[in-house]
C-alpha cells in the first residue's frame, strides 16, 4: 500500500427520490489498498461502490479517480470507466459469447486491441483465474463460481487501476465461494487497489487492509483491518461485530 490516494470521495451525497442514501461520505483509498466495505443491508455500501464508476449519479460532492473528477458533469465517463473494473453479484456475463469472447470484448471494442493479441491475453487471464479448459464454454455451461471468475477476468482484461467487487460471492452456493475469494486474494497480493463490498468477514479480516463500516448512509468507522477486528472504536462497530459472533 502506497501513500498516494487513487480514489477519493469528498462529501458525497446521493438520493433515491426522497431517500437520502449516502450522507456526506468522505473517504480516500490509497494505491494498492484493499478497502473492505461492510455494514448492514440498506446502509449504502453497494450504492457507494456503484457511484465510484458512475453507474449511479451523485447529487453533491465529488468522486475522483487519480484526481480526475468522474462525478463532474463534463467527465469523460467512458474513458474513466476503462480504468475501473467492476464485478457484480449476479456475474452479468454476456450469455451470447463464450468465456473467452466475454473477456476479449472490452479490449477489442473499447481499446481497439487486435483480435489475436486480445485472444492471447484472454487465454492467459483464463489460466490465471484457474479456468484453463473452459475458455470456449458459454456462461450457461459454467457453474456460478466459474462464471464469477470469468467476470473477474473480463474486468482485468481492461488493465484497470482499481477493481470494484459488489457482493460477488452472495449469489454463490457456499461450496463455490472459496474459489472466487482465492482469485481475489491473489489479486490483492499482486497489489491491485480494491474496493470490496462483502459479507465474508473471514475475507475482510485476512485480505482487507482497511475496513469501512457503513451504517445508515454514513461511514461509521474506517480503520485498518487488524485494529478493527481487534477492538472497534465506535459503538456501531462494536455492535456490528458482536452481532457477527
Amino acid at each position: 500500500m502506497s501513500n498516494e490516494s487513487i480514489v477519493e470521495f469528498e462529501n458525497v451525497n446521493k438520493y433515491f427520490g426522497q431517500t437520502h442514501v449516502l450522507k456526506d461520505v468522505s473517504m480516500e483509498v490509497k494505491e494498492q489498498e484493499v478497502t473492505v466495505i461492510i455494514g448492514p443491508s440498506g446502509s449504502g455500501k453497494s450504492t457507494l461502490l456503484r457511484c465510484t464508476n458512475r453507474l449511479e449519479e451523485i447529487q453533491s460532492g465529488e468522486i475522483r479517480l487519480d484526481s480526475e473528477a468522474i462525478s463532474a458533469p463534463d467527465a469523460d465517463v467512458d474513458r474513466l470507466r476503462q480504468r475501473i473494473g467492476m464485478v457484480f453479484q449476479s456475474f452479468n456475463l454476456f450469455p451470447h459469447m463464450t468465456a473467452k469472447e466475454n473477456i476479449m470484448l472490452g479490449p477489442t471494442e473499447v481499446k481497439g486491441i487486435p483480435e489475436d493479441e486480445a485472444r492471447e491475453r484472454a487465454e492467459s487471464l483464463i489460466d490465471e483465474v484457474g479456468l484453463g479448459d473452459q475458455g470456449d464454454s458459454y456462461p450457461e455451461e459454467l457453474s456460478g463460481g466459474q462464471q464469477q471468475r470469468v467476470a473477474i477476468a473480463r474486468a482485468l482484461a481492461m488493465d484497470p487501476e482499481v477493481m470494484l467487487f459488489d457482493e460477488v460471492t452472495s449469489a454463490l452456493d457456499p461450496e463455490l465461494v472459496g474459489e472466487v475469494l482465492d482469485v481475489m486474494k491473489d489479486l490483492a497480493t499482486g497489489g491491485m487497489t480494491m474496493l470490496v463490498v462483502t459479507h465474508e468477514m473471514g475475507f475482510a479480516r485476512e485480505v482487507g487492509d482497511t475496513i469501512t463500516l457503513m451504517s445508515d448512509g454514513k461511514i461509521a468507522e474506517r480503520r485498518p483491518a487488524a485494529e478493527f477486528f481487534e477492538q472497534p472504536q465506535t459503538e456501531r462497530g462494536q455492535e456490528f461485530l458482536s452481532r457477527l459472533l
Partner: peptide
Amino acid sequence: EAARSLGM
C-alpha cells in the same frame, strides 16, 4: 451495466 462498466 456490465458493458458500460467496461468503458463501452
